[in-house]
Every structure is written in C-alpha cells, then in structure tokens.
Design a protein around this nucleic acid. Sequence first.
DNA 1: GATAGTTTCAAACGGGCGTTTGAATCGTGC
DNA 2: GCACGATTCAAACGCCCGTTTGAAACTATC
Lengths: 237, 237
Amino acid sequence: MPAQRTARRPPATDALSQDTKSRILDAAESLFTEHGFEATSLRQLTAAAGVNLAAVNYHFGSKEELFQAVLTRRLDPMNQERIDLLERYEREAGGKSLTCEKILSAMLIPALRLSRDEKLGGKNFLRVLGRAYADPAPFIRHFLSEQYAEMISRFKDAFLKALPHLTREELTWRLHFVMGALSYTLAGTDSLKLMLQVIAVEEDNDELLLQRLAPFLAAGLKAPLGDAKKLELVSGY
Amino acid sequence: MPAQRTARRPPATDALSQDTKSRILDAAESLFTEHGFEATSLRQLTAAAGVNLAAVNYHFGSKEELFQAVLTRRLDPMNQERIDLLERYEREAGGKSLTCEKILSAMLIPALRLSRDEKLGGKNFLRVLGRAYADPAPFIRHFLSEQYAEMISRFKDAFLKALPHLTREELTWRLHFVMGALSYTLAGTDSLKLMLQVIAVEEDNDELLLQRLAPFLAAGLKAPLGDAKKLELVSGY
DNA sequence: GATAGTTTCAAACGGGCGTTTGAATCGTGC
DNA sequence: GCACGATTCAAACGCCCGTTTGAAACTATC
C-alpha cells in the first residue's frame, strides 16, 4: 500500500528526527535484539520509535517484512563488502592463490567494521543476526540462505584453492564450523558469556577479539583430515 | 500446586501412553524445536500431547518452567556424563595431563550419544538447546549459565593443563569459539545448512560429523597465539 | 488556492494468548 | 465402601496481539 514509486523528495530532516521508516528500523533492530522477534510487539515497537501503530503495516506490509528489512539494511552491504574485498585481494595476488588468513580477513573485516559502526546498528544488528541464524521460522531461513548464497559460494572457491588438501565436502563442513564460531563470537550471546565467565573488560575491543578468533579458525581450516582413532567414537565406549 | 511429594505409584503404563508429565515434555521438546518458545502456544502443545490445557500449569507451574524442565531433563545427565568421562580419562592417565583430543572426546561423546538416542529426544533436543543459547530471555540465560557452570569449569582446568602455552584468558575465548562451532553443528540449524548447501546424505551420520569437527577444534585450540600482522586489522584498511 | 497523492492517526476488528477456577473424576488407604 | 488427596476437565478470565479501516493532515504541483 505505500506508494513508493511516486515518492517525493524527503523533507530534509536532521539526524535526530529521521523519517518514519528509519525510525521504525532503528527501534526494531534494538528491540528484536533485546526481546527477539516473536516477543517484540508492534505496539511497543512503534511506541519506542515514536510513530503510529499502523505505520509498520503501511511502510513494510507486515511484521515479518519489517524483520527482513532490518536484516537487509545491514546484511546486503556487508556481504557485498566481503566479496569486494576478496576480489581486491585476488587482484593484488595476481594469479597466485591467497593464504587462508587473507581469505579469513576478507570475511572478518567487513563484519568487524559493521560491529564497530555504533551509529549504524553496530553490535545490536549482529545479535539480531545471531538469533536469526538459529530461528526455525521458514521465512527467516529462506531469506538468510538467499542473502548469503553468493558470498558463501565465492569464499568456498577461494578456500578450495588455498587449501588443496581438503575435498569440497570437507571444506563445506569446516566453513560450517567457521560460521558457527564467528556468529557466536560476533553476536556475543549472553548465555555463552555467562557460561564461560568471560571478563567484561574486553567486550569493547573487537579488534582484539578477532585477533583471537582468526588464528583459531585458520588453524582449524588447515588441520589435517580426521582420524577415527583420535576420537574414540566406539558406540559402546 | 501439583502435590509431588505425596505422589502414589504411577499406574504401570506401556511405552506408548506415558504419564501426563512425560507426554507434555515430549510434545514441548518437539514443538519448541519446530516453532521456538514464544511461537509455541500452550493450546497447540497440550493438543499435541493429548492432555488438558490446564495440565501444563498444574504440573510445571508456567510455560517458562516447562521450558526449563525440557532443558534440564536432557542437560543435567549429559553434562554429568561429560564430567564423569573426563574424570575417568584423568584417572586412566595417572598424573599425566590428557591430550587435547582426549578432552574434546569427553565433551563430544556424551553430546553424540544424546543426539543418537532417538527415543529420548535426540536431535530435537539439541536444536532446542541451540536456539536457547541465542535467546535473550533472562530466565533462559541465567538457567543455562547455571547448568553449565560446573562442567565448563572442569573442562577449562583440563584444557589449561593440556595447552600450557595458552593463558587462561586466551583459553576462555577459544572455548567460546569451540562452544559456538559445537552448538551450531549439533543444533544443525537449517539456515546454515541452506547457506552452505550441505548435502543431506550425511545428516544422519553424527559420528562422521564429529570426526570432522574434532580435528578442526583440536587444531584451533592448539594454534599459536595470534599475530596482528596476519590479520590486517588496520582501521582504515 | 483547489487538487491529487502521500502519510499519519485513533479506533476498532477478530482472534489467540497464558493462566485460573471450581467442579468432576480417579486411585488408593483406612 | 467411604473419605481424601491427586489429577483431569471444560469454561472462563483479562489481556495483548497483528492487522485493517476511513477519515484527517500534510505536501507538492498546477
């Protein structure tokens, strides 16, 4: 119903009072982080954004579409940045295959930049994303897989060249592990923090965090193939 | 309100028609997996369990307490099994410190056994757990951190002995990464599967899965400390 | 300054939610 | 076989949900 095609120029607002759509997106990002998608009502959301209750359905169509808009706003640019960075590295390397660490950099740096960009969502968004990964709702699952398809495919090719001892199948699994560790780290899920009694001092220093994560992931990716004897997975144990 | 102390003997039922509490727990495990905690209503839950709507509040007190009961039923034994297995390994090793792989085995094997035990929840439960990790609800976060505290503490000590080159702080972070990868893998979140186009053929073979995960994690844990130059984390990049 | 399109608004819609209640039913010990 | 606590049941409670509606307010164009 929102007539987005015949739109007129936006009425030059200052940074504090943006237009309705942005105010809704910001409030949604923050509240979905705090309470989750299902537990956030449009009434509290629109109240926090200072807009009318009907505004969400007018501008986004439905609560679900609002959620997708929250994700797209940050995810599209981030994944594009990842691809651009990877291609830049590949150009700079001129035919030679990149190191594992270099490819990881191309994945982590755009995520780090997003996490740092406080005025544009920052950590809030990454937590929403972390929750979305684990959400069973079909509309979220399909949306995410579409959003990531191209980026993952490009990086898989790059890793395959950098890690010739891995089969494509083995690499797929290791990327799964990488995404798991990365998502938990960036999302900074409170349960894990509590479980592990992570010291809060470091929470603000994402650069240090990724300098811990990168060697871990690189070593895991480079690891030799598994040996059944190492893990004594006998059914009777 | 449920008078659990003066309880009489349960009326010897067969396996198909268990008592009300178990039927509720089973249905909850399955539905929380499928739709999540917030999106699952007590009406559909009690209908699926074939019990009266009021039964949940009678036997568990509230929907939240039911959720905790769902987690405790599987989590308590699994974490205890992990601790027991670790201590058995330590006894068998005499004074010597365990290998990293051995300690990982003590973490992974009980989880694998749980995942295999189809008749007792199996993968359903691990998916509920995976979602719970990312849930921001305070009652879930506090509950999980209490459930895991002892287990994590014991394993951290074991890893510290096995990996003397790591500081306690560094190890805390690496365990965070381990838990992230482990949780994603066991939970088998559909979004990640879709993203990575994992071949469905392997889904049922958890043993093979952990034989892929273990070398990855072990290599990551053993990795040398990070070097800032490896990841080009210059703010201007 | 009338007009047409866009956006906001208050109010209401129908429905589902978690929980409570009080009576009916069940199972057992006296 | 009666009494009593444990459990089940149907019904209702009060509340909040996502969405829709139609009128009011706004803004740019002629």
